[in-house]
Every structure is written in structure tokens, then in C-alpha cells.
């Protein structure tokens, strides 16, 4: 299912307090266990790279994730941004871009060329993960709906409302940035910030 997502989430989302990771942990564990059930070929394609610990860092969220896509013992745990975590390979980027890449709607190399996505650590493992996910045809919406079972309808209704809301919020944030930029320019400052001025607002963990 193609999602219409903004380039990145509005800045305030990243400043929200992170939900208690302890509460989220069973949900994400269920999510990766479900992915293993529905896409065993992805874990098979990953082979030995499935035993690496990947840091998934949606830079516009207050949480980060550690994932070990191991067919024997899959793991997906949320952590508060800033919490010390151990990882061997990292993928960082705005949540909408990460979702588009996982859903097969945007090309990982293109996101790397445009600097939307940053990778660190074990490059080989990141490449293997990206290729395996791309082949598996993951759809995060369907995965989440499968997780929710009978409550999937609630998610669908929420999604219908949330996406336009997020897009509107992103447009408002963009307009506010542009207005701030114009005010800044009028004040005689020239710092070279363009339309891209919003990128990289949050650092890594």
C-alpha cells in the first residue's frame, strides 16, 4: 500500500517525550516475530548478517530501535534517544524516508546520494539488510495491521486521519521556516540556509 508521507515529521514530534520503552517492547517484539512468520525468505536471504545488531534511528522521533533480524532469535527493541545502546551497523534518516525505503517506494542508494539516509558501522550488513527487505516486499502498514488483528480497522481509520494531518503539519512547519528565513534575510543576515535548512535537526543517539 503506497503511503503519501511528508519528507520528514514535524520538528515537535522529535521533542515529544518518548513513550516508556518497557510498554512498547512487547509490541515491537510481536512485530518482528510476525515479520519472521510472514517473510521467512527475508531472514534466509540475510543469512549470517541477521545476527548483527542494527541501530535503526528515525532522526525525527524521540525513540531509536535496536534490531537483530535473526531467524532463531529475532529482536526489535525501542529505546529512548540518548540511551546507551550497542550496535554494529546503523541506519539513520527521517521516519517517512525509512518507511518509504522499507515499503519499496524509494531507492536506498538514491536516499544515500541525496543524504537523506546515513549509514554507519558494518556497511556490508546494512547492504544485506536493505537488499533482503527490498526483496521481501514488506509493507509496514500491513505488518502493523496483522499485528493488531481485529483492531486493524481502527488503525486504518487513524491512518486516514493521521496522514493528512501530518502533511498539513509539515506544510505549516515549512511555511513557518520560510517565514522565519525571510524575516532573517530582511534583518540582513546571510547564512546560506536554503529550503534544506530543516535537515539534520536532531543528532544521533
Amino acid at each position: 500500500m503506497a503511503l503519501s508521507l511528508p519528507e520528514r515529521l514535524p520538528g515537535f514530534v522529535g521533542r515529544l517525550p518518548a513513550p516508556p520503552p518497557g510498554l512498547l517492547r512487547p509490541v515491537f517484539q510481536q512485530l518482528i516475530a510476525g515479520m519472521l512468520r510472514r517473510h521467512p525468505e527475508m531472514f534466509e536471504r540475510l543469512g549470517e548478517y541477521g545476527r548483527r545488531r542494527f541501530l535503526i534511528d528515525p532522526v525525527d522521533l524521540p525513540v531509536i530501535f535496536i534490531m537483530r533480524p535473526d531467524a532463531e532469535r529475532p529482536l526489535l527493541t525501542p529505546h529512548r534517544r540518548g540511551e546507551a545502546v550497542v550496535w554494529e551497523a546503523a541506519v539513520r534518516g527521517p521516519l517517512p524516508k525509512l518507511i518509504s525505503m522499507v515499503n519499496g517506494e524509494e531507492d536506498g542508494d538514491a536516499l544515500f546520494f541525496s543524504r537523506d539516509i546515513v549509514i554507519e558501522g558494518d556497511t556490508e550488513a546494512v547492504l544485506a539488510l536493505r537488499n533482503a527487505i527490498d526483496d521481501a516486499g514488506i509493507d509496514l502498514v500491513e505488518e502493523t495491521e496483522a499485528l493488531l488483528g481485529p483492531f486493524a480497522g481502527v488503525l486504518a481509520a487513524l491512518r486516514k486521519r493521521a496522514v493528512p494531518l501530518l502533511e498539513a503539519a509539515a506544510r505549516i512547519a515549512g511555511a513557518a521556516r520560510a517565514a522565519a528565513g525571510r524575516a532573517h534575510d530582511k534583518a540582513g543576515a546571510h547564512d546560506g540556509a536554503g529550503e534544506d535548512g530543516g535537515r539534520g535537526a536532531e543528532g544521533a543517539s
Partner: peptide
């Protein structure tokens, strides 16, 4: 190996060679 420096610079390395240093926002 890729690494990010403060200020958003990205360094790409191949083996013992530094291949490139991209400024923040520069296409890679």
C-alpha cells in the same frame, strides 16, 4: 566505512583510503 563528523560532514573510506569528504547536504 562511512562516518559523520560534527557539522554534518560525511567521510567515505575504502580500505585504508579516504575516498571523499562530503559537506553537509552535498550530494554523495
Amino acid at each position: 566505512a562511512y562516518s559523520e563528523r560534527e557539522g554534518g560532514e560525511m567521510v567515505s573510506r575504502l580500505g585504508e583510503f579516504t575516498i571523499n569528504t562530503f559537506a553537509a547536504g552535498e550530494k554523495a
